[in-house]
Design a protein around this nucleic acid. Structure first.
Lengths: 205, 205, 205, 205
DNA sequence: TATTAATCGAGACGGTACGTCATGTCTTGTA
DNA sequence: TACAAGACATGACGTACCGTCTCGATTAATA
């Protein structure tokens, strides 16, 4: 679930050819900064467009001009955070996955990304647009996991009949259930156990 | 994540020793019926206490008297649905899990339980009380999965070093990520694949 | 505007001849005590049947069984206060009136009667029953003023063509406008001036 | 208690120096129209902000943005009525006062002002803000009576030692006690008698 | 250099829902 | 069978946001 500077859900509008001011960039940043701050301070419960606008010194219409609603704004808040996954290739699938999970959870814990992400999932339960966004978002952002699987495949670690999409669902599921229930502490034991069970299975071999 | 008629989040208060009126059973049922209907028709986005009250022909104070808010109400809507898991013992861990998942997803698809459940998760992201409720709810409801694991253990199917809690997180995670992204169709292939990977692992053996 | 133990707006029901408990008297008193206390502590704004019932340790239906609503209860609270007008006959109309007003205002200031009375007037503006009650109440309670006028008449102080009802309206009006705007301090100067103007008129003689 | 187009209790806010939206005049008028209609049709008992909002096709927050509550709204309903006092100078104090009272009572009877006024007094009994408003309202609106007294003074009609404030209380009191008990019919006899007693006094001269 | 037009901040608007309070009536169980 | 206790339907309270709308002020490319 790595992070890259992909395009935000709703792009900054193209420069108009003719005339007009375009403080857009500055404004957009102020808004995202404010959104992040509000999310950090008040949580998803206190996250309202109204608060963000006030904090950003922006008008509500300015926000609505560029983002379709809460979900889109949250998605951009998430997207803006730079995920740095130090752990490169550890040489084994299990090592890579443990490193990934630890890095990702640290990222979620230490930035606004965690709150944003949980908020997006929540939003997606009542907002079809957010659901669509969440799904494509998932796919896009999973490429680091995909990479890990590809490396493992090259090493010949993977079962030949493995279905990658299903594997991704399993890994994603574990990540989600832990965040959504507020349990993403950095406990290497727990993570290692989970990874071992996902990779080696739970049955006697 | 099996379902049994456990006590609802907010129980009917104990009979007072002296005198006094009691909770109106009729009212409570009308409210839960209405909640279910509203949830089915308008989804979580349109699920408001106000609507439920109007639909139930009840007063808002009556709802707030017995439920602390949306989350508690949703929990009861979920709890009221009777989950019938036909598949008993199929003889193997994989068989049991496939049966469980198929049964549970059918239940989620065919009753209001699915919507209620997703709503509860969403609510828990902005409401600490709901989060607490969700967690204990999870624990309580997982005993069917626990049972399956115990049968598997008796058969000697499980790896000796297995950590049950982690296994539950993995299974739960898979269930959640599929519902939350709206993919709980009854596709035996997909489910079987997922179960195979969770039990046997994804690495070459 | 003197006070006498007249019947309350809604009488205590007669003792039943046959059977059953009849705590009525004790209950009624507890309710009136509570009503008075609530009125004193929370004012008319905080005066609710609910509060009175809770304070009295009575059920709301018990209150409604004997009083038709707030207005009736307030009327009884007022009626229960014993107005003691020390000033008897001062020998002049002006002296009698000053003594009456000072005594009455002291009574209003020092008991719940003042609050009750203002509350009744307020209630009468939205409640026709209360209005009727207020009017008959006025008439009944003015007999002390009437007495004063009669004594003055015997002394030959009054203008022969005087219309008593109008005179009562004027005196009452002065009393009301002062209470209703919260100005019933015991300032003998002010009162004396007002009485002088009401009796002698405001034109040069 | 004359009426003139003074500023309403809550004025239209001053133009901000820079930019921004302004109060919608149309909205304000719709709200006051609705308030008047509701007051006329349902009386003070049925006068709720909710009803006014519904009737005006306005949102409740819009009402609360510009008026602090019922009292303020009622005050504006009153203030909006144009009191036309035809009777100018009749040449005598008594004549002027009779004309004033008849004109004022007609005004109260024929417009919503009467109901609004009584409602304001009622409201003031439970709402301290309303009480303050009522008091300053009284003072402001009495200038017509003051004028009458000044003319009388110029004519040399008044007793030299007369205290104007007290005289105003007496006249006001008479006006209030009659409205509050629902007796403001246009009976010239009654009014003339009352005025004669207030001006000439009730004692033999 | 002046004109022009898109955006900006600000915030009012009609709404919906919130969670609380009081009303007056109904019901239950105790004494 | 009268009472306390309190649940009930109703409906108003005052507040928070929603997403849309109108203002003037600002500003930069076009003319």
């Amino acid at each position: 679930m790595p992070d890259t500077p992909i395009e935000s859900m709703q792009d900054i509008p193209p420069r108009r050819s003719s005339a007009g001011p375009h403080r857009s960039q500055a404004s957009a940043e102020a808004i995202l900064d404010a959104a992040e701050a509000v999310l950090n301070e008040a949580g998803y419960a206190g996250f309202s467009i109204e608060q963000v606008a006030k904090r950003a010194g922006a008008g509500k219409p300015t926000i609505y001009r560029w983002w379709s609603g809460k979900a889109a704004l949250l998605l951009d808040v998430y997207a803006r955070q730079k995920l740095v996954l130090d752990g490169g290739d550890t040489g084994t699938l299990e090592g890579d996955l443990v490193a990934l999970i630890r890095g990702l959870w640290r990222f979620w814990r230490e930035t606004s990304a965690g709150g944003a992400f949980r908020s997006i999932i929540a939003e997606a339960q009542s907002n079809p647009t957010a659901l669509v966004a969440l799904r494509s978002f998932m796919t896009e952002r999973l490429y680091h996991v995909v990479e890990i699987f590809e490396r493992a495949s090259d090493r010949g670690e993977l079962a030949p009949e493995l279905d990658i999409d299903t594997a991704l669902d399993i890994v994603t599921g574990y990540l989600w259930v832990r965040t959504l229930t507020g349990r993403i502490e950095d406990d290497p034991e727990t993570i290692a156990t989970a990874v071992r069970q996902m990779t080696r299975g739970i049955v006697r071999r």
